[in-house]
Amino acid sequence: MHQTTYHRASSVSEAVKLLNDADDGKYVAGGQTLIPTMKQRLAAPSDLVDLRHIADLKGIEVSGDKVKIGAAATHAEVAENAALAKACPALCHLATHIGDPHVRHMGTIGGSIANNDPAADYPAALLALAATVHTNKREISADDFFVDLFETALEDDEIITAVSFTVPEKAGYGKFPNPASRYALTGVFVARRADGVRAAVTGAGENGVFRAEAIEKALSSSFDASALDGVTIPADGLMTDIHASAEYRANLIAVMAKRAVQAANG
C-alpha cells in the first residue's frame, strides 16, 4: 500500500470538505473493496475520508410500506434487522450471503452500490425493488444509478446517504456463488409489486446489473416458478470468464430466477 492519510468525518458536510481539501482523496466506508485495491497498489489515494461514523448515514428504518437503509449500514446489520426481516426478508437473506463474517461486519450497502462491482449482490436487489438512491445532492432511481461496470451516476464528491424502497408484495433472491470469491457468479432478484414484476440479474451481464425482460414477462402472467419453464435466456451480452461461459450463465439466470421465485413464494 502507498502512504495515505486517514480522516474520520463526523458529518456529511465535513466529509465533503475533507475530500475537496485533499490532493487526491477518496471516501472509505467498510474498506472491503477499497483497501484490497490499495494493497494491490491499483489505487493510491492521498487521503481517505471515513464515512462510517457519520450518524446521518446509520440506521435502518421501516415505517409502513417504506424502507430506508442508511448508506453506512453494514451487511450484518441488514442481515439481522428484525423489522426488515418482516418487510423484505429477501434483502436480509441476500446480505447473509455476502462474503464472510468479517466482510459482512465491515462492508456497507453504500460502499457496495457506489462500487457497482458487476458481481455484487445489492445492485440486483436495488434494481428489482425499484429503489431510490439518496445522496447529499439528489435522489437517483436505481434504473439511472447503475451505469456500467464499476460505474455509477455518482459525481466525484457525491455521498450516498441512504437507499429507500417501497415494501414489495413478494421478493426473492437466487444466488449461485463464484466458487472462489463467493461473489455472485449469477444472482437474480425478483420482486412483485403493485405495478408489476421486476427481475434483475447480477454477476452475468457484460455491462453489469440488468433487468431480465423475458423473466419479468413470464412472471407477470403468473408469479410461480413453473411460469419460467421453457423460458430461455440468450447468451448474447453475458460475460465469459474462467469460471463460467456466457451459455452457462444464461442457464444459471433461468435456474436462479426459478429459485428466487420459489423463495419469494416461501
Binding site: 466458487p179 472462489a180 470469491s181 474462467i242 469460471h243
Partner: peptide
C-alpha cells in the same frame, strides 16, 4: 475446486488470488 490457469496467449496467471483460485 483448484485449477491454476494461465492465459494461453499472454502467459499471465489468471488465478493469482483467492478471488479466482478456489481453495
Amino acid at each position: 475446486l483448484e485449477g491454476c490457469h494461465y492465459d494461453p496467449t499472454s502467459g499471465q496467471l489468471v488465478t493469482a488470488s483467492y478471488m479466482d483460485y478456489t481453495m
